[in-house]
Design a protein around this nucleic acid. Structure first.
Lengths: 208, 208
DNA sequence: GTCTATACTGAGATAGAC
DNA sequence: GTCTATCTCAGTATAGAC
C-alpha cells in the first residue's frame, strides 16, 4: 500500500467518523491529507470504494476475534447462555472501540446512512453464520422464524446504540464508554431473546 | 394549501419513499410533479424544509392517536403492563402503514439516512413524554438511567424493523404485514424491558 | 402572491499531460 | 503515480413575468 493510499484512508476514517459519509466531501479529505483530488479516484475508484476499503481494514481484526470467541463457545458441550453468545459477538467491537474510538463511530454512522446493508454486510457472513449456530444452542426451543426476527431486532438496537448517544441529563456514563453501553444492551437483548414467542404464530403464550 | 404545494408534497413523498432523501434530487421531483424548480423554494424554502413539511402532514394523525391511547392508559388506576404501553405506542404506526404503505417506508428511509434525530424528532416530543410516563407506571422499579437506555435500544430496534425486512427464506409472513411484525417486536421488547438491570452500573465506574 | 428562467457555488468524476 | 483542467449535476438564490 502506497503512502498516499494510507494517508487517504487515515484521513477519511477520521473525517467520516466526525462528520459522516455524506457530509464529508472528497475535497475536505484531500485538503486534510495533503494529496490531490484525483489521487482518490486513482487509488480507490470512487468515494464509495474508498469507504469500503476503509471499513475492511478495520473490520477484519474484529471479525476474526468474534469468530475465534464463537468457535470457543461452540467447542463447549451442553447448553450455552444467551448472555455469553451475545457478549462473544459484541465484546470485540468494544475492544476495537476502546483502542480506536473512531472506528465504531464510523460503523454506526454508516448504518445510520443506510450504507452497511448494501456494501459491507457480505463481509460479515462468516461471523453471522457462527452467531446463529451458537445462539441456537442457547435457545433451542425458539421457533426458527421468531429467532430470525429477533436477530433482526437485535441488529437494529445494536447499530442504533453504537451510533447514537441517548443524551439524557444526569447520565453517569461517558458517551464514549462502550463497555457499559454493551453490558446494558446485552442485558436488554437477553431478556428479549428469552421472552415467550408472540402468540400469533404458535399460541404458546400461556406461561406468563 | 395551493395545488402546487400539494403536488410537490405528494411527489416528494413518493420519490423519497422509493429512493431515499439524498438520492432524490429536487429536479426529479419537479419533473415528476410538473412544476418549476423555484416553486419548491418559494413554498418550502429548502429541500430540508420540504421534508419537514412532508413528514408533519403524515405524522400528525399518527401521533394524535398515540397520545389519545397513551392518555387512556394513564387514566386507568393501578399498574400497567409493558405490552399495553408498547402497543399503544406502536399500533397507530401500523394503522398508518396499512392505509398508506409509503409513509412508513419514508420514515424508515429517513431513519436509515440519519435524518430523523436532527430534523424531525422534536415534533415527537409530546408523544415521547407520555410514553415515558406510561412506561414508568409499568416498570416502577427500573432505575431511571437503565430505563432511558432501554428506550434508546427500543428506538433502534423499532426503526430498523420498520425500515428493513429480514429477508429470510421460508418466511410465512408478507414483508408488508406490519401487524405481525409489531406483535413480534412487542414481545421481544417486553422481555428486554423486564430483564434485570445490568450489574455493572455502580461497580466499574469507580475506577475511572 | 405565484411561478418561470436562469445564474451561482460546490459536489463527485474523468481525460490527458507530465 | 500524480496533477491540472474540465465535465456534469446537485442545491440554492434571485430577477422579473403574470
Amino acid at each position: 500500500m502506497s503512502d498516499t493510499s494510507a494517508k487517504i484512508l487515515d484521513t477519511a476514517e477520521r473525517l467520516f467518523g466526525e462528520n459522516g459519509y455524506d457530509a464529508t466531501s472528497l475535497r475536505q479529505i484531500i485538503a486534510a491529507a495533503g494529496v490531490n483530488l484525483a489521487a482518490i479516484h486513482y487509488h480507490f475508484g470512487s468515494k464509495e470504494e474508498l469507504l469500503d476499503q476503509m471499513i475492511l481494514r478495520k473490520a477484519e481484526p474484529v471479525n476474526e476475534e468474534r469468530i475465534e470467541r464463537m468457535d470457543r463457545l461452540m467447542a463447549r458441550p451442553g447448553r450455552l447462555e444467551v448472555e455469553e453468545v451475545l457478549e462473544a459477538f459484541m465484546q470485540p467491537m468494544c475492544a476495537a472501540a476502546a483502542q480506536n474510538p473512531q472506528f465504531v463511530r464510523v460503523m454506526g454512522r454508516l448504518h445510520a446512512e443506510g450504507l452497511l446493508p448494501s456494501v459491507i454486510q457480505r463481509h460479515f457472513q462468516p461471523v453471522v453464520a457462527r452467531f446463529h449456530m451458537a445462539m441456537k444452542r442457547a435457545l433451542p426451543e425458539l421457533p426458527q422464524e421468531e429467532f430470525l426476527w429477533r436477530v433482526h431486532f437485535m441488529i437494529g438496537a445494536m447499530a442504533h446504540t453504537m451510533c447514537n448517544s441517548p443524551e439524557f441529563p444526569g447520565s453517569t456514563v461517558a458517551a464514549s464508554d462502550f463497555r457499559d453501553r454493551i453490558e446494558r444492551l446485552v442485558a436488554f437483548l437477553s431478556g428479549g431473546f428469552r421472552a415467550p414467542a408472540a402468540r400469533s404464530v404458535g399460541a404458546e403464550l400461556e406461561v406468563k
